[in-house]
Design a protein around this nucleic acid. Structure first.
Lengths: 125, 125
DNA sequence: TCTAGTAGTTGATCAGATACAGTACCTGTC
DNA sequence: GACAGGTACTGTATCTGATCAACTACTAGA
């Protein structure tokens, strides 16, 4: 993000990607894991590809999120079959994780309409 | 926010308010100022009331945002008529501010659909 | 007088996101 | 066989927005 570096001229333009999704990372990861277990890099690629490359959650951000989710008991990690070479750490969503996911999706819906209405505050758009 | 403090049990439930709007504060303030100049506390109340009290951007957060916006030339500040006692610092959106606002609203629309699609990634909701 | 609300401000701290760097393995190519 | 590039995972340092917890100052009302 470069928000403050090019204030009036560029400011906030492509500042897009970064902070705007802040706080949603965990929920997004949980969402990806709902269907089936995946390994870290696979989740990264899934998110990157799902947005057509417009948007990318950085690897470091995701691995930090995995650690957080494991610590909080929302996902479990296990090493995959390493016989074919490269190691892969898989993640599995827990029941607690599914519950949090559902609540966070609800929260997102509220947040979304909150921002929508705030940006339309006093009309004149 | 208490995201990490009550992980599996409450975790992320009412974590709602805080981080989920992170990065949108500046845009929200600019949005409030589009229609007319307002003073700091008035903006705070407008945001608080507009969400029916569900959601509140803390005063400290807003005053930090004002400083940032002034520094970046997106709003201008001036002291109001102090003859009736309490001092009030008013904020006026600049042309640069309006431009950034429009771009940020566009970015929000993209962000919104990005999150929507990520939370629906691989269906099965 | 005391309380509460309005109004503005600051300093310390927290936590998520990122940059950057590094390790390790595998595959394809010259 | 060396090397580039992609896959896969990790750690550390830093940035920044948000919040907490104060604080000053004025006004109105119980």
């Amino acid at each position: 993000m470069q928000r403050a570096s090019e204030p009036a001229s560029a400011g906030g333009a492509d500042a897009f990607a970064a902070d705007l999704l802040r706080g949603h990372t965990d929920t997004i990861v949980l969402g990806v894991l709902r269907a089936r277990d995946r390994y870290g890099f696979e989740i990264y690629k899934a998110i990157r590809d799902a947005t057509g490359g417009d948007y990318e959650i950085k690897e470091a951000t995701l691995y930090a999120a995995y650690r957080r989710l494991v610590k909080d008991g929302l996902v479990e990690a296990y090493w995959g079959d390493e016989s074919q070479g490269g190691r892969r750490k898989y993640y599995r969503i827990t029941d607690a994780g599914r519950a949090v996911y559902r609540r966070n999706v609800d929260a997102w819906v509220v947040t979304r309409s909150t921002i929508d209405s705030l940006l339309d505050l006093k009309g004149s758009r």
